[in-house]
């Protein structure tokens, strides 16, 4: 019975994905990526075709579509955000890439350095895709020429993993670091739906239901994604502390939290994973524009996003609404019946069976979630 329910949820989620893709008149590209101008993706979208024509089997384009992900920003760099932002173009041209024999694209750092060198003393238009709702924007970054008497830092330890870009930087440090990463990696997030263990690890650490999303954990253990990955990591950290990085959609900020996992290996909250639980678009209040005009150092004040539209990126609000309404209508009847079903099963089981069942950490199907 439970397996059937879980399969139903997966079918439902897949149908949402398919509907969204079809509604955008693009058969393959994930709706989350369709805010990116097609010309910025052309170089990457062409290479898999070439690879296929050579008889090499290629994976889904949504899994390989990549950008220069911001992995670190300086304290004084306010234009970019780590984790969420990807550079997908310069001056409305794609990131220069080269393809290997398997059809996979990699950034041409030599040409990228040339672009920055050419813009010394000017601003460079950088095309950014953000994982917050899958939105696209432009940032104008000032490229400051390096003074002639500036000396480059040369590491005494030769590190094979960090080769030079092949061309001397004629500009000062930009205040951010990047790594070529698939865009899909930023969708591996776990939405806190509710706290189910009073005074449990989640509640003690201050996780906020509906508002919070776990986007990563110490050492990047969540980087590969997967519906059960968080659950597996938490279970493996029983009796230990675990550092999680949490995004709050109301305050539009990321904070680190430390949770102490008990001997049962549970986080104490239900989490949602998948298309419906990606980071939503940030919505600012109308007063922000006025505030920016009056204040030299404005702090935008995000407005709480209603849960009805929270998971729907702004670029495609229309298609999912009917689907969402259906699930809302079901909420009053079907889930209660399912809860009764599960509770009935628990009451009849033996004590040993109960403890074994509690380790399963099964997701309640009506919310497309998993329990940790």
């Amino acid at each position: 019975m439970f397996r059937i329910a879980k399969n139903l949820v997966r079918t439902f989620e897949q149908s949402v994905q398919d509907t969204l893709a079809l509604s955008q008149d693009s058969s393959n590209l994930d709706a989350f990526f369709q805010s990116i101008p097609p010309n910025l993706l052309s170089a990457q979208l062409e290479s898999p075709v070439d690879a296929v024509s050579e008889g090499v089997k290629h994976t889904n384009v949504n899994e390989t579509l990549s950008g220069l992900r911001i992995v670190w920003v300086d304290e004084m760099q306010f234009q970019l955000q780590s984790f969420f932002d990807y550079i997908v173009g310069f001056n409305d041209d794609p990131v220069p890439v080269v393809s290997n024999q398997h059809g996979f694209s990699y950034p041409d750092y030599r040409r990228i350095t040339s672009i920055f060198n050419e813009h010394c003393g000017r601003t460079l238009k950088v095309n950014i895709w953000s994982a917050k709702g899958g939105t696209f924007r432009d940032e104008y970054i000032s490229i400051i020429s390096k003074e002639s008497d500036d000396l480059d830092d040369v590491s005494l330890n030769h590190d094979e993993r960090r080769p030079s870009s092949g061309e001397a930087h004629q500009f000062q440090a930009l205040g951010f670091k990047v790594q070529w990463t698939p865009l899909i990696a930023s969708t591996f997030t776990y939405h806190i739906l509710n706290v189910n263990i009073p005074d449990g690890p989640a509640q003690s650490a201050g996780l906020i239901p509906d508002e919070d999303y776990i986007i990563g954990c110490q050492d990047g253990l969540l980087a590969t994604g997967g519906e059960t990955l968080l659950q597996d990591i938490v279970r493996s950290r029983a009796n230990y502390d675990l550092v999680l990085y949490v995004y709050n959609k109301v305050s539009d900020c990321v904070r680190p939290i430390t949770v102490h996992i008990g001997p049962d290996g549970r986080l104490g909250c239900n989490v949602g994973y998948g298309f419906l639980h990606r980071i939503p678009t940030v919505k600012h209040c109308p007063q922000q524009a006025q505030q920016q005009g009056q204040d030299d150092n404005p702090v935008p004040v995000p407005v709480p996003v209603e849960s009805e539209t929270a998971f729907v990126p702004s670029a495609f609000t229309a298609p999912p609404v009917p689907t969402k309404k259906k699930s809302k209508n079901k909420k009053g009847t079907q889930p209660l019946a399912m809860d009764d079903y599960f509770n009935e099963g628990r009451d009849k089981s033996s004590t040993a069976a109960k403890s074994a069942e509690s380790d399963i950490l099964a997701p309640p199907p009506q919310k497309q979630s998993s329990s940790d």
């Binding site: 992995v71 670091k177 109301v250 900020c253």
Partner: peptide
């Protein structure tokens, strides 16, 4: 009760992913 003051203190903070295990390819460039 959600502590908004505490949350707003993290507004300008960015997570450092340079030491994370990653599915990205190639070196971290700056």
């Amino acid at each position: 009760e959600v502590d908004r003051v505490m949350l707003n203190k993290w507004r300008q903070w960015n997570v450092d992913m340079t030491t994370w295990r990653s599915i990205g390819s190639g070196p971290i460039m700056e």
